[in-house]
Each structure stands twice: as structure tokens, then as C-alpha cells.
């Protein structure tokens, strides 16, 4: 089963998740939503078993990353639900068993929906991009330095949607860490146009009433941004309760 979902079926995806009592979309479903917005995600597929995982490695091409799939498992790293990089079908199958065992011991309440096998793309510089439906401010866009130091360094900037071009520019310049986008320590400047298009696409959700009314937050962390473009390596769509 490919993770891509027919365009326009996002409302259905959200409705189905709500019907199952989920508080959030699973990672593959969250990424399906991003894809309909035109935000690039790594190629991947969801499998049910270790055997299917092995087959998926050949279909996608190594190296891959194997991730636990469950809408209840919002912190995959903490619960050992992610293994990378994986080079062979056998290793992928073994990774599924490892993840299954780890999750069972840490969160015995969770039954996995399966595994997401995705092309492995190292996060060269890790950014965070989010859209939040704030009870006081309405739709708020956040962009900044992502990864594990988000809360420690707070190199993030907020603007209210809808965004004007100058607001998008401010998101990319306001905090000192944003200078990394210009190319740090010999690195190349990132593809700003692709990044701006991604921010524009995400903030545009605020104007799509069918989706905006059903969700409380979309968070892409990390969003890797390079001279070649952007890629959403992880995504979480939190549903409105």
C-alpha cells in the first residue's frame, strides 16, 4: 500500500481518523496530507509485517528508515519506534521485529498499525515548520530551528496567517539561527524559493475551511532544507478535539 492518498481525500482521511477516536493522524496519513499540499515527503510505503518490509526495501531502494506506525505513538524516538539507516531486506525485517518488541515493552497499550518504510534522507539541517489553530490568535505559522533543540534554543518565529510575502521573509530572517539558511561553514545557501513555497502551502491550509476546522495543529519536524529543496522527514497532524 502506497502512502499517497487520492488528492482531495484529506477530509475523508480526517473523518476516518476521528471515527476511530484518534487524537492525531498517523505519520503516513499526516504525510499524505502534506503531499496533497505539494509539500515533498520521502518516498515510502506502509507494510503490515516484517516480510513485507523486506520486499519494500527493494521497491524503494536502500538505504531506508523503518518507523513504527500508530497515531498514538507521537514520540517515536523516545519509544524506540525508529531504526535507520537500513541497507538490506533482512535488516529491514529485523528492524520491524526490534521495533515491535521495544514498543511492546515501553507502551504495552499500543497496537501498531504497521511499519513505514521510507527512503532514508539524512537531516542536514533540521528546521521546524508548523501551523497551529490558536484559540486566541486563530491560524499561527511557526518556523525556526528544529530537531531536538527546539524548546531549548527557541529560535522560532511566529506570524499570523494569512501571510504576506514580507511575513514569510520575516519568518526566514528574524532569529539569528536563520542565517544558517544562507549557508554556514562553507555550506551552500538553501533553496529559499522552495522553502517559501512550502511555508505558503502550509499556511494556505488556514483558508481551506474543510481541513482547518478539523485540525488543531500541523507540525513538520524535522523539515530538512538544502540547496536542492525541502523534504518533510516527519509530520504530525493533531486533530481538533
Amino acid at each position: 500500500m502506497l502512502t499517497s492518498s487520492p488528492s482531495g481525500d484529506i477530509a475523508g482521511l480526517i473523518a476516518a481518523a476521528k471515527a476511530r477516536g484518534q487524537a492525531a493522524l498517523s505519520e503516513p496519513d499526516s504525510k499524505a496530507l502534506l503531499r496533497t499540499l505539494g509539500i515533498p515527503v520521502p518516498p515510502g510505503r506502509v507494510v503490515r509485517s516484517a516480510a513485507e518490509a523486506a520486499l519494500a526495501v527493494n521497491a524503494i531502494g536502500p538505504p531506508v528508515v523503518v518507523k513504527a506506525v500508530s497515531p498514538a505513538l507521537t514520540h517515536k524516538t523516545d519509544s524506540g519506534g525508529i531504526v535507520f539507516p537500513i541497507e538490506t531486506p533482512a535488516a529491514a525485517a529485523a528492524a520491524c521485529d526490534t521495533i515491535q518488541a521495544r514498543v511492546r515493552s515501553i507502551r504495552p497499550d499500543i497496537v501498531l498499525d504497521g511499519f513505514l518504510i521510507e527512503a532514508f534522507r539524512p537531516a542536514q539541517s533540521e528546521w521546524i515548520l508548523g501551523l497551529r489553530m490558536d484559540p486566541q490568535f486563530g491560524a499561527v505559522v511557526m518556523f525556526g530551528l528544529g530537531g531536538i533543540y527546539v524548546d531549548l534554543l527557541r529560535q522560532v518565529t511566529f506570524r499570523l496567517a494569512p501571510l504576506r510575502e514580507q511575513d514569510i521573509e520575516a519568518l526566514l530572517t528574524e532569529k539569528p539561527a536563520m542565517r544558517i539558511l544562507d549557508g554556514a561553514r562553507g555550506g551552500k545557501p538553501v533553496d529559499r524559493d522552495a522553502l517559501k513555497a512550502t511555508i505558503r502551502a502550509l499556511s494556505g491550509v488556514a483558508e481551506r475551511s474543510d481541513i482547518a476546522a478539523a485540525i488543531s495543529e500541523i507540525e513538520i519536524n524535522p523539515l530538512t532544507v538544502t540547496e536542492h529543496g525541502v523534504l518533510a522527514l516527519d509530520a504530525l497532524v493533531v486533530l481538533r478535539s
Partner: peptide, 13 residues
Amino acid sequence: ATDNEVLDGALRQ
């Protein structure tokens, strides 16, 4: 309480 980070960005905007 209002989220100060959001308010600060919004005021600049």
C-alpha cells in the same frame, strides 16, 4: 495568559 512568543511575532507583523 497569552502566548508571548506568538504575540511578539504578531505585533511585529
